[in-house]
Design a binder for these strands. Structure first.
Length: 556
RNA sequence: GCGCCUGUAGCUCAGUUGGAUAGAGCAACGGACUUCUAAUCCGUAGGCCGGGCGUUCGAGUCGCCCCAGGCGCACCA
């Protein structure tokens, strides 16, 4: 809907075919400056060496020959070699009328072709509250899911709950130690891999209050010098921490379609099956009583790694490989993970394993870089082990969901993020999120004002919109026309941050327009048209903010 | 030692996959509220795009070599 790129590409290729008998796939880009029109192709540069003419010459010939599709007003060659295209006024009016008629479909596309795609993100171990890195992952992942869904993918989000294995055992040990501490017994948290955070001591206190009988038995058994059954408290704290994680994710507006339990998965027997498949594929070797995967067979840069330890336990890698096989068994055609930098060393391994299982090209990992929290100009050092962390909840409480989400999303995933808390707090009145939201609130107010005067163009027609003639008005309409491109790029490149910058630019055009012109004025025609423009703008802003999981307030 | 990520305005970051004059927010300076929201607007200033060499019509973007910061290199997860 309202994306002329494809039509234009066809028109250009057929013009080129007629002129030079060459087959090309033209690139259409958005002009970065509106002086250069709305859309641009650099086809003449690509052809210059093949056709042996200057780019400028080719641009002129192509521009003359091209059969312009509906909605494109003209093709303008430049001396340097570009061909610039301009949307027709009629196209822009159509666009505005279209947005108002079907606001929830503006820029919606089917580029995903209903492909079944799964995005796994956060997946932090349930050994403590979520930290800022998880907060970033939650924000980015959830908006990516929204964007892919809007782009026509059959999208599912999943959180892998690592609720089994060594770290969980260590968590249990740490928790038991804290219970002993609460009971006044001698206690020690496992020094190597234990969890030292205060939250565990707090939960120990909750446990003894909540289960006085079980607590009593525990303490009495210890006092007799015997070893009690600690299964209940161990299970309880995991459940408790998982619930906290789910609450935190809700808190930052990141919903998941599914939480996938490792403990449950281990019972299904799938791990054995996958191991068997790998064995059949002749990718397994035994060495020193352990079972290894020959990753080097699939990627020369990788080395074999252990799947089953000599004590018979599966490694994390083995379980994770089987888990990913299970995703494909469940029918996902594309599987994406968002991983933190600390798991970087495993990317090559996992990819090699997926290749071995026949999923090459269907699996990819997006790496999300770390977050540095700055306070008073200094980095806050964080360690989950020692419990010295800044939690998701703390940061959201501090700056608000909308601000936190925007800051997390508004940068490339690969970029390290310096989150200056002082700045976020101090400038919370003038940060970019409010700039965008304020545009939305202002427009809402105008529409309310207009409505009270009996002006409510729910279904604006093109005739009314002919009164839009000022350059600022047309610029706004042209900016709106870009929205489908932005969405497509965002989905194709799995990059939610483009949406942030687009919305900022849109707001950046609206505010000056607002101060310069009156929307509701004496001229009825102009008023109608401007109110309609405002409606379209409001829908686009709300849509974009919605995809980012950020609220679009009516009042500020 | 090996691998990955990053280096763009004082600060935080974009830069349409190699294209036109490198952009935005904050911070700084000077202005603007009697009409739909001043969380706004108008104006000024701010840059050897870490450094070097190369590739070509053309490089912030690609290649190689340095420099700086971060993160990984387990029969841990």
């Amino acid at each position: 809907m309202f994306d002329l790129t494809e039509k234009l590409e066809k028109a250009i290729s057929s013009a080129v075919a007629e002129l030079y008998n060459e087959a090309v796939e033209p690139e259409i880009t958005i002009s970065e400056n509106f002086e250069f029109g709305d859309l641009t192709t650099n086809i003449a540069f690509k052809l210059a060496s093949v056709v042996r003419k200057s780019p400028g010459e080719i641009a002129t010939e192509v521009a003359d020959r091209i059969d312009l599709p509906d909605g494109v007003e003209c093709a303008e060659p430049t001396d340097s070699g570009y061909v610039n295209f301009r949307y027709s006024a009629d196209f822009l009016r159509n666009l505005l009328a279209g947005i108002i008629a079907k606001p929830m479909d503006f820029g919606r596309s089917d580029i995903g072709k209903k492909t079944k795609i799964q995005i796994e993100y956060v997946s932090a171990n349930p050994t403590g509250p979520l930290n800022v890195v998880s907060a970033r992952a939650a924000a980015v992942g959830s908006s990516l899911v929204n964007i892919l869904r809007y782009a026509g993918y059959d999208t599912n989000s999943e959180y892998y709950l690592n609720d089994a294995g060594n770290q969980i055992a260590m968590l249990g040990d740490s928790f038991i130690a804290r219970i002993r501490q609460g009971a006044g017994l001698d206690w020690e948290i496992p020094p190597e891999d234990g969890y030292f955070g205060d939250y565990i001591a707090d939960l120990a206190a909750v446990y003894s209050d909540k289960f006085p009988q079980k607590y009593k038995i525990l303490v009495e058994t210890w006092e007799k010098g015997e070893i009690p059954d600690t299964e209940h408290p161990r299970k309880w704290i995991i459940g408790e921490l998982i619930q906290q994680i789910k609450d935190d994710l809700e808190y930052i507006n990141a919903g998941f379609d599914r939480f996938f339990s490792e403990a449950e998965f281990r019972k299904t027997g799938k791990i054995e099956k996958v191991l068997e498949t790998l064995r059949e594929n002749n990718t397994i070797l035994r060495r020193e009583d352990a079972v290894w995967f020959s990753a080097d067979k699939y990627d020369v840069r990788e080395e074999p790694f252990v799947l089953v330890k000599s004590d018979g336990e599966y490694t994390y890698a083995m379980v994770d490989i089987a888990y990913h096989q299970d995703k494909f068994d469940r029918g996902f055609e594309l599987v994406y993970d968002i991983w933190g930098p600390d798991h970087h060393g495993h990317i090559g391994r996992m990819k090699a394993a997926m290749k071995a299982l026949g999923h090459e090209g269907k699996f990819d990992i997006l790496t999300l870089q770390q977050v540095n929290l700055l306070e008073a100009g200094k980095k806050i050092k964080m360690s989950k082990r020692t419990g010295n962390i800044v939690t998701l909840r703390e940061i959201v409480d501090d700056v608000g969901v909308d601000v936190a989400r925007f800051f997390f999303i508004a940068r490339r995933m690969e970029a390290h993020l310096d989150f200056d808390l002082d700045l976020a707090r101090k400038e919370s009145d003038e940060n970019p999120v409010y700039y965008i939201q304020y545009a939305h609130a202002r427009i809402s107010n105008i529409l309310e004002f207009a409505k009270n005067k009996g002006i409510d163009p729910k279904s604006a027609d093109r005739k009314e919109l002919e009164a839009l003639t000022e350059p600022e008005e047309l610029l706004l309409a042209r900016k709106l026309a870009i929205w489908p491109h932005i969405l497509r790029k965002s989905a194709e490149e799995m990059s939610p941050h483009y949406i942030c910058f687009y919305l900022l630019e849109l707001a950046r055009l609206f505010h000056p327009f607002y101060s310069k012109y009156r929307v509701v004025g004496d001229d009825k025609k102009v008023t109608m048209a401007r109110v309609a423009l405002c409606r379209a703008l409001k829908e686009a802003l709300a849509l974009g903010l919605g995809l980012l999981g950020i609220s679009a307030p009516e009042n500020m």
